[in-house]
């Protein structure tokens, strides 16, 4: 059989993909570890050891990227999990129009991030934006969503959740639909209420969906660039700068070595946070 294997499934089929993937993704990734240790002009490089990393950790305008990225990734993830799960349970219940509502919730996920950023930028205008005008109708004075350094990052988080919660919702819906109906029937015979049903059946048995949402949202959050760049450009000050936007700023300033060091830190950051969580979640998986 192994002979047949070699004959039929020749590694030759992998070669085109391997070349493209290696040249355009894997090789630059490996190279980045070297170039992060240099002062680099793209034509010439000078080896300077850990100097770039030292600069990253000593300058507050660069350090803030870690804190912001961490906050951004975890807050978007938690909001997407909570809201997505509640929406999914609601959209799997016996209401009418649920297909319409599912589509409505899901559609923003397909829109361009830049377009969403531009539109919310206008709506979040502190004086004439429709969000604050709407809040004024019910007697609330809305904040300066994107101009106040204390809440600007959270405003971007809210827009990210608005755009991305649809993906979390459809994943949860797929997970809930896969739960065999017998479990619910048995629960009904035992006379449990719907909250217990959610707690003891829906929640544990949609675990694979939950894991997928957590991992996708965390990795997506840590890599975010477009939305922040379209909405705030990292400002006011550096209050909404994420690692990805800091990398862009260093790149645009011509500090290629420093930008690459930021890139390496982003890899490590994603690896150090996403990988253990991935392992932990998979260990606790419940078998159907």
């Amino acid at each position: 059989m192994s002979n047949v294997n070699k004959h039929m499934y020749s590694y030759f089929f992998i070669i085109p993909a391997a070349i493209i993937y290696t040249v355009f993704f894997l090789a630059p990734t490996v190279m980045s570890f070297f170039f992060s240790l240099t002062r680099w002009t793209l034509i010439d490089w000078e080896f300077i050891g850990l100097e770039n990393f030292k600069q990253f950790f000593s300058e507050p305008s660069l350090m803030i990227g870690f804190k912001n990225t961490l906050f951004y990734a975890f807050s978007t993830m938690s909001l997407k999990v909570i809201i997505g799960l509640l929406l999914a349970v609601f959209l799997c219940s016996k209401i009418r129009n649920k297909n319409l509502l599912r589509s409505v919730v899901f559609f923003p996920a397909l829109l361009s991030t830049i377009a969403v950023g531009v539109v919310f930028n206008a709506m979040m205008n502190p004086t004439i934006g429709i969000i604050n005008k709407g809040l004024a109708l019910i007697g609330i004075t809305g904040p300066d969503w994107l101009g106040d350094a204390n809440i600007a990052l959270f405003s971007v988080v809210l827009v990210d959740v608005w755009k991305g919660v649809g993906i979390a919702t459809v994943i949860f819906i797929a997970g809930i639909m896969a739960i065999p109906a017998e479990y619910y029937e048995a629960h009904k015979i035992d006379g449990g209420n719907s909250f217990q049903e959610f707690l003891h059946i829906t929640l544990p048995l949609s675990r694979p969906a939950l894991n997928t949402v957590i991992i996708l949202a965390l990795i997506g959050g840590m890599r975010t660039f477009d939305l922040v760049w379209a909405m705030t450009g990292g400002g006011p000050g550096f209050s909404t700068d994420l690692l990805a936007s800091i990398i862009y700023k260093q790149y645009a300033g011509g500090f290629y070595g420093l930008a690459t060091a930021g890139n390496v830190l982003l890899f490590l950051f994603v690896g150090l946070i996403a990988f253990p969580i991935f392992k932990l979640l998979n260990r606790k998986e419940v078998d159907l």
Binding site: F24, F25, L26, P28, T29, M31, I219
Partner: peptide, 19 residues
């Protein structure tokens, strides 16, 4: 190796250099 590509973003400047 394939899984790595799902997690990690591209290395910007080295990619430009390769291109």
């Amino acid at each position: 190796m394939v899984l790595v590509g799902l997690m990690i973003p591209p290395a910007i400047v080295p990619t430009i250099w390769v291109l």
